[in-house]
């Protein structure tokens, strides 16, 4: 880039602080989501997303209140 501003050309192999953000952005925001129940953890408590974006609840609470089976896996995205 013919440019007088501060340009940063990176590759995904460069584990510096700037590319760290890129890497985290990619692993957390890119790729296939399997629709269904995704279990994540926050502060040591297992949480479950039902349908990924509908409900966020603790696993224990979800199992206590869920009478239906988890939704089937969906399409790759």
């Amino acid at each position: 880039m013919s440019n007088t501003s501060q340009d940063i050309a990176l590759t995904s192999d460069a584990f510096d602080e700037v590319s760290l953000l890129d890497i985290l952005d990619h692993v957390l925001n890119s790729g296939v989501i399997i629709h269904g129940n995704l279990v994540i953890s926050l502060a040591g408590v297992d949480l479950v997303y039902v349908g990924l974006d509908v409900i966020l609840s603790s696993v224990e609470t979800a199992f206590r209140h869920m009478s239906t089976k988890p939704p089937p896996p969906g399409k790759p995205r």
Binding site: M1, S2, N3, T4, S5, Q6, D7, I8, A9, L10, T11, S12, V18, S19, D22
Partner: peptide
């Protein structure tokens, strides 16, 4: 690229 614009290629 103009001097005001930041560009990153990854």
């Amino acid at each position: 690229v103009g001097s005001e614009i930041g560009v990153r290629v990854t």
